[in-house]
Lab assay of single mutants.
Amino acid sequence: MSIQHFRVALIPFFAAFCLPVFAHPETLVKVKDAEDQLGARVGYIELDLNSGKILESFRPEERFPMMSTFKVLLCGAVLSRVDAGQEQLGRRIHYSQNDLVEYSPVTEKHLTDGMTVRELCSAAITMSDNTAANLLLTTIGGPKELTAFLHNMGDHVTRLDRWEPELNEAIPNDERDTTMPAAMATTLRKLLTGELLTLASRQQLIDWMEADKVAGPLLRSALPAGWFIADKSGAGERGSRGIIAALGPDGKPSRIVVIYTTGSQATMDERNRQIAEIGASLIKHW
């Protein structure tokens, strides 16, 4: 067993022997301040990774656009098919120029040779490549099948209805392509620590998230040296922004954090800054 596999296998073990965790309302004060600064709703939840206990939450059962955070769930569904012998990570998928959609920095470079399922998941999570996500959605049967996968996990809230990039439209009061912070946090925890996926697939999923290259201005910008984070960000229309993450000190994750916002007129930089400040408060009061 590799060191990384050992780390993920012992996530519940280490967490069980940690000192009790206590909620700190100071972080919620910052979440509410972010709402004021952005002029928009902000949803927040913080779960203990081992027990699933909610440590703090704000608007945990209000719907927010998922945006690209759905790509972690998508690759979880792909990995479940791999575990069941219905898919192979090494299978190569070929596609054409007509398949390319807006923001496809990886797939646009491989029109000639195609990409493997493993490479597509890596591109979808680490670079948020939209064509990679659409190609992977095709392998599982489309958005409705991802929703069905989530329902089978016990998540009857999260739903995907459309493809990239239309799913980022974020129309107010439109339930399409949305989740709730509580539902997303619980589902992410199941994917990373539950028995739904094999140990190898859980490790692969967290490795992809740990290698995320496009979430630097968010929670990662607030992390002290030595902290662990595996995350996936999302951005959408109407001032929408979000991030889902597993993080913790001492090089291992111990909490799940989900943050979503929508309806702001603020710039992307300002949305990023507010999420980073929430992260800084979380870490300060850990």
Score class of each variant (00 low, 15 high):
Ala246Cys: 14
Asp129Met: 02
Ala77Pro: 04
Glu166Gln: 13
His110Asn: 13
Met184Asn: 01
Cys75Tyr: 03
Gly239Leu: 02
Ala183Asn: 12
Leu74Ala: 07
Lys213Ser: 10
Glu46Ala: 11
Gly142Val: 03
Gly194Trp: 08
Asp36Ile: 12
Glu195Ala: 11
Thr186Ala: 14
Ser221Ala: 15
Thr267Leu: 10
Pro65Asp: 01
Ala124Asp: 02
Ile54Val: 15
Asp48Glu: 11
Arg63Ile: 08
Val29Asp: 15
Ile283Cys: 08
Val214Cys: 07
Ser233Pro: 05
Lys109Trp: 10
Tyr103Ile: 04
Gly154Arg: 07
Gly263Trp: 05
Leu74Ser: 03
Ala266Leu: 13
Leu55Asn: 07
Gln88Met: 13
Ser264Cys: 09
Arg81Thr: 07
Thr107Lys: 01
Leu135Gly: 02
Asp174Phe: 02
Pro253Phe: 09
Leu47Pro: 01
Asn98Thr: 14
Pro181Ser: 04
Glu61Asn: 12
Gly154Thr: 05
Gly43Glu: 03
Val214Trp: 06
Thr261Arg: 05
Ile206Asn: 08
Leu150Ser: 06
Val78Thr: 08
Leu282Ala: 11
Arg273Asp: 10
Ala211Trp: 09
Glu169Asp: 11
Pro165Ser: 07
Glu56His: 08
Arg255Thr: 04
Glu175His: 14
Thr138Trp: 14
Ile243Lys: 02
Asn168Ser: 08
Val42Tyr: 05
Gly263Glu: 09
Thr179Gly: 01
Leu218Thr: 03
His285Cys: 10
Asn173Lys: 14
Ser104Gly: 06
Leu111His: 12
Leu89Ser: 06
Leu89Gln: 06
Val257Trp: 02
Ala182Gln: 14
Ser233Arg: 00
Glu108Thr: 13
Ile229Ala: 04
Gly52Ala: 07
Glu56Ser: 11
Asn168Trp: 04
Ala246Thr: 12
Thr193Arg: 15
Leu167Trp: 01
Leu196Val: 15
Lys32Asn: 09
Ile125Asn: 00
Leu192Val: 10
Tyr44Ile: 07
Pro165Cys: 07
Ser68Leu: 00
Asp161Thr: 06
Gln203Met: 11
Leu111Ser: 09
Gln37Cys: 12
Thr116Trp: 04
Arg91Ser: 07
Ala235Tyr: 00
Ala245Leu: 03
Gly234His: 00
Pro165Glu: 06
Val257Glu: 03
Val78Ser: 02
Ala230Gln: 01
Pro253Gly: 09
Gly90Pro: 08
Leu247Cys: 07
Ile93Cys: 04
Asp36Gln: 15
His156Pro: 11
Ala170Lys: 05
Leu150Ile: 12
Thr179Ser: 09
Gly43Arg: 01
Thr198Ile: 06
Leu196Lys: 15
Ala123Ile: 05
Asp174Gln: 05
Phe64Tyr: 06
Ile278Trp: 01
Val72Phe: 03
Val29His: 14
Trp227Pro: 00
Glu166Phe: 13
Gly234Val: 03
His110Gln: 10
Leu218Gln: 02
Gly263Thr: 06
Val72Lys: 07
Pro181His: 02
Leu28Val: 15
Val214Thr: 10
Gly251Tyr: 10
Asp174Ile: 03
His156Glu: 12
Ala182Phe: 15
Gln274Leu: 14
Lys213Asp: 06
Trp163Glu: 09
Leu28Met: 13
Asn168Gly: 10
Met153Trp: 10
Ala266Lys: 10
Val42His: 03
Glu61Phe: 14
Leu247Ala: 06
Thr69Trp: 00
Val257His: 01
Gly43Trp: 01
Pro253Arg: 09
Glu46Phe: 08
Ala280Phe: 13
Met180Glu: 12
Leu199Ala: 14
Gly141Cys: 05
Ala225His: 12
Asn130Lys: 02
Gln88Phe: 13
Glu166Lys: 12
Cys121Gln: 04
Ile243Val: 12
Ala225Phe: 11
Glu210Val: 14
Asp129Trp: 00
Ile229Pro: 01
Gly76Ser: 12
Leu100Lys: 05
Ile93Ala: 05
Ile54Asp: 06
Ser240Glu: 08
Pro60Trp: 07
Gly141Phe: 05
Ala148Glu: 12
Ile259Gln: 02
Asp83Tyr: 00
Leu188Gln: 00
Met67Trp: 02
Gln97Ile: 13
Ser254Gly: 13
Asp48Pro: 01
Ala183Gly: 08
Val257Lys: 02
Arg159Trp: 06
Leu218Met: 09
Thr179Asp: 02
Trp286Pro: 02
Glu119Trp: 00
Arg271Asn: 10
Ser57Arg: 11
Glu108Arg: 13
His285Lys: 10
